[in-house]
Design a binder for these strands. Sequence first.
DNA 1: GTTTGTGAACAGATTCACAGCT
DNA 2: AGCTGTGAATCTGTTCACAAAC
Lengths: 220, 220
Amino acid sequence: MADSDPQPRPMIKVPRIPPMTVRRLSTYYRILRTLEALGDSEPLSSERMSHLTGFTAAQVRRDLAYFGSFGKRGVGYDIQELQLSLRSILGIDRQWAIALVGVGNLGMALLSYRGFSSQGFHITSAFDSDATKHGRRFGSIVVRPVEDLPRVAGEENIQMAIVTVPPAEAQRVVDQVVAAGIKGILNFAPTQLQVPKGVWLVRVDLSIEIEYLSYLLTNS
Amino acid sequence: MADSDPQPRPMIKVPRIPPMTVRRLSTYYRILRTLEALGDSEPLSSERMSHLTGFTAAQVRRDLAYFGSFGKRGVGYDIQELQLSLRSILGIDRQWAIALVGVGNLGMALLSYRGFSSQGFHITSAFDSDATKHGRRFGSIVVRPVEDLPRVAGEENIQMAIVTVPPAEAQRVVDQVVAAGIKGILNFAPTQLQVPKGVWLVRVDLSIEIEYLSYLLTNS
DNA sequence: GTTTGTGAACAGATTCACAGCT
DNA sequence: AGCTGTGAATCTGTTCACAAAC
């Protein structure tokens, strides 16, 4: 299931998807899960999805149509079926093993955050360069030296890393993550980082968010 | 300084700025601070800023030119001067008082996160709906009932709220934040929220980020 | 000579509007 | 009759390329 088949282009689809489209898919998926949990089983129209998400109906249809024809004309989208399709597209129809690097305040919070694991994202190991933290336990996870990352990544088949180290260490840590063969990195360090081709880096920068809010309050 | 002058359009500028431009300003500002800390006082060209940020030089110039003429032709941008201009534009040439609502794992992490306060963003009070948490201290901050928010917001002149409550509570909490007269909200709850006009909502959705990473790893 | 600031060209994303299917 | 899927039009953001300033 967690195969790493080495073909360059695994399937026929994917005619260059706008990043924002992919990000909206997560929202659609969450809405569908909520509706299902509420017992709603009516087919869902793009119009109704529009009300639920705040995106336009045309955008909902366009976004979904990038990946195929999931709806029935005159009817709408089947909640169950579309949910399964989105799970498959987003790659969340599987379990992901994740290493957390940097066990500071934010790192510790993410270790205990339930929102990830419920959707198949499992932080299975934690690393820190600070020797005084080594051996410390968080639930079933023991903090280890960053040097152990390559070995552990192989042993535990880790496919993602969450980086929550101070900015000055971030590039060095990311280099180690890449050297460990990990291809996906979620970076919380507020700094510009380089990764080689074939490695994906997604950045969450809280300074940018709060300064954007500051801008909006100041200039609007 | 933290005046709330009630004119609809406070200054001459602002000819509709692309949100992404504003978000890049934060990055420029951070680079400038770093350069200054390193003792670099050469004027900075858009070309050099391009190398440091990964954005194109043309984009750097266009972004800055939205707000005025900060550079000298043939020379570049003065590090000190541009830094001051960006501080003013971003509204971070002042102190912000922030209420944190929802003292769970993530909320606690943000309470101890140093990255905010060093740049003038101060979490000065914390609220939770869980009575067992009331009175608990984090440094100088005592956790209080959410019902106290309107009173405390007034007393402590709070201008922003960070919302880190479970999704099911988020809309109710945001309504209380709005009722308390707070105009800027940084929301971490993974759910769609409504705020009235004049209130700014910035969303940080970790599910979207990690699912986007999952998509990239699955489809690239 | 160098580098900005900016019209004009370009690229990308969103919305419109309707043909095509159920 | 109703709603999707999609070309075409529109809107928004980025890059080009060069005249103006130093």
